[in-house]
Design a protein around this nucleic acid. Structure first.
Lengths: 297, 297
DNA sequence: ATGGGTTGATAGAAGATGTCTATCGATGAT
DNA sequence: ATCATCGATAGACATCTTCTATCAACCCAT
C-alpha cells in the first residue's frame, strides 16, 4: 500500500511512467499496475492518460497530498526507531542555494561532532528547486531565502543576513574605494549568476532601483567559476559577504561593501512543516538555532 | 505495510494476540507473523512476550503512536476521495456519555438533512471509554465533559453547560419546592449512575461539598432504567436538565432546579487533533459549532 | 502520407508474500 | 499433577507482485 503511494510520488516528480518506475527501482508495467490498483481501490481515476502522462485528476492531486504525508510519516517512523537503537545515524540530504554553500560547513561541522554516524549529501540548487525537492521528500532540509518569494508548507529558521560586496581588483576602477553605491556598481561590467538564481534576480532588482541596468559580461551557475574569473584581476562580481570571505581575498582582490541601500536578505534553514520531524532533521534545526546568533552580524 | 500497522493498533487495544487477530479478521498466526515482520523491518522487538502479551517495548510504543497517525491518515484519505465522488457518505461513529445521549439528536438531525447518505453508529460509554475509543480510531468523535478530567490529543467544541435537576414525585418530600439546595438533595435517597460514570463522580463531589454523603439506593449505567424508577413516583434522582426535559415530565413528576452552588459542567464535542479531519468528521464539527449557541442557556 | 521513435497498456510466467490449518511448548491456575 | 490458555512454529495453499515480451496509440519528421 505505502509502496503504491511512493509510485504516485515518483510519478508526480518525473511526470513519466518509465522514469518514475526507474526511480522506484521497478519496471514500468509494475508501476502502471500499482497506479491502476490505487485507482481501483479509490474508485476514481487518479492520472489523466492519453498515450502519455497528462497530469493528475483533481482526486489524484488530493491523493498526492496524502501520499506525501503518509510516506513521509512512515519514513520518519523508521528513522526514529532506528535512532532509538543506534543513536542518530543515516543520511542527511540537504540542498542550498549557491551563495549559501560556503556557510553550510558552519552547520555540518558541529553537527558531525555530535552525531558522527550521520552522513551528508548536499546539493547546490536554485531556491525554487530547493522547495521542489523539499516537497517531493527528496531532501530533508534546504537553505535558501526565507523572506522574498513565497514558501510552501515549511518551517524556517533564520540563519544570517546577506550583505553584498563588490569583488574587484585593487587597481580596477572603484578598486581603491572603501565603500561603493549600487549606482556605481551598475557602471561596472560584472560576472553574475544565471537569472534562474534568486540571488541574481535580487541583484538585478537592486541595480535597477539604483537607476542602473544589469548587463553582466559573464553568467554562470557556479560561484567557483565566477570567483576564478575575478581572481584574474580582469573581471568584477557582486557576491554576498559570507561567500566572499570564505573564498579568501588576496592582496590584489578587494571585497568592497556596497551601501545606499544597504541591501540585506535573510537566509535560513527550511524544513517540512510536519510534526514531529525526523530525528536527523530535528537535530539539524537545533544546530541551526544554536549557530544562528554567531553567524548573523 | 499499513495492514501490519493495523495489527499493532488492534493488539494495543485488545492486549491479546488471538482477540486482536479476530478484530482484524485474520487468524492468530497471521497476526503474529505480521507483528514479527514489522519487528524485523524495524530491527527491534516491539512487543514483550512471555507466553502471553506483556505490553509494548519503548520502541513499540513509538511505533504505536506512528501507526495511529498513519492508519488514521490513510483512512481519512480514502474517505476524502470517496466524498469527492459521491458527496458525503459512509458511517459516522460517535460515542457519548449517557447524560448527553438526549442531545445527540440535536446534532444528528440537522446533519442528516444536509448529508442524507451518512449513516450513524452511536455508543453510550463512560467519559474515559470515549477517549480510549477515540485514541484507537474506533470512533470518529465523542461527546463528553471537556473541562474536568484531562483530555488527550484532541480538539473540542463546547456544546452546552449541564445544569442539575432533582427529579422527584410532586407528593414526595421536597416535591412542592421551586428550588432545592445540594444539602437538601443529600437527604433524599437517590437513583444514580454507577461510579464509573463521570456524571456520578461530579454529583458525589457536589453532595459531599454540601456536607452530605452519596448513598444511592439504586445504581445503574442506564438513564432509561433510572428514569423508569423515578416515573413510579417512589424514587428520586439527580439528572442534567437537558435529559430531564427530553425524557418528559408528567404532572406527578417534577424536575426541580438545584441551587447553591449552581452547578454547571461543560459538555462538548471531542475529535482527534489531526489536520485535516475526515470530511464526515469535519461536517460534524461544523454542525456542532452551528448548533452550540442554540443549546447553551 | 509514411515510417521511426516514444509512451503507456496488456498478457503470461515465475517468484514472493500472505494466510490458513494443525500442532507444539510454555505458563499459570486449580 | 492436570488442565486450560496463550503465542510460536511448520507446512500447504492461495494470492498478489513483479518481471519479460509485446502491442497499440500517438507524435513528429521527412
Amino acid at each position: 500500500m505505502i509502496d503504491k503511494l511512493e509510485f504516485i510520488l515518483a510519478l508526480a516528480r518525473e511526470r513519466h511512467f518509465g522514469h518514475a518506475a526507474e526511480a522506484c527501482g521497478v519496471t514500468q508495467p509494475t508501476l502502471s499496475a500499482g497506479v491502476k490498483q490505487l485507482e481501483e481501490q479509490m474508485g476514481v481515476l487518479l492520472v489523466n492518460r492519453g498515450s502519455r502522462f497528462q497530469g493528475f485528476t483533481p482526486e489524484g492531486q488530493r491523493v498526492l497530498e496524502w501520499a506525501r504525508r503518509i510516506v513521509g510519516d512512515s519514513r520518519t517512523m523508521r528513522e526514529e526507531i532506528n535512532s532509538l537503537r543506534h543513536g542518530l545515524s543515516g543520511r542527511l540530504r540537504l540542498a542550498a542555494i549557491p551563495t549559501a554553500l560556503a556557510m553550510v560547513a558552519a552547520l555540518t561541522t558541529p553537527y558531525r561532532e555530535k552525531h558522527p554516524n550521520v552522513q551528508f549529501t548536499i546539493y547546490s540548487r536554485t531556491s525554487i528547486e530547493v522547495l521542489e525537492l523539499l516537497d517531493n521528500l527528496e531532501i530533508d532540509a534546504g537553505i535558501t531565502y526565507v523572506e522574498n518569494e513565497p514558501l510552501g508548507r515549511v518551517n524556517t529558521v533564520p540563519l544570517y543576513r546577506e550583505h553584498y560586496r563588490l569583488l574587484t581588483a585593487a587597481d580596477a576602477p572603484l578598486g581603491n574605494r572603501d565603500r561603493v553605491s549600487w549606482a556605481e556598481v551598475a557602471q561596472v561590467p560584472l560576472c553574475l549568476l544565471t537569472p534562474d538564481m534568486q540571488n541574481r534576480r535580487i541583484i538585478d532588482r537592486l541595480l535597477k532601483s539604483a537607476g542602473g541596468e544589469s548587463r553582466p559580461t559573464l553568467e554562470s551557475d557556479s560561484m567557483i567559476l565566477l570567483y576564478s574569473h575575478v581572481r584574474t584581476g580582469r573581471w568584477a562580481s557582486v557576491m554576498p559577504a559570507k561567500i566572499a570571505d570564505t573564498l579568501g581575498l588576496t592582496d590584489t582582490i578587494r571585497a568592497i561593501p556596497i551601501s545606499e541601500p544597504e541591501a540585506v536578505q535573510t537566509i535560513g534553514l527550511v524544513v517540512p512543516a510536519r510534526e514531529p520531524m525526523t530525528p536527523i532533521t530535528a537535530a539539524l534545526v537545533a544546530e541551526a538555532r544554536r549557530v544562528a546568533p554567531q553567524l548573523s552580524g
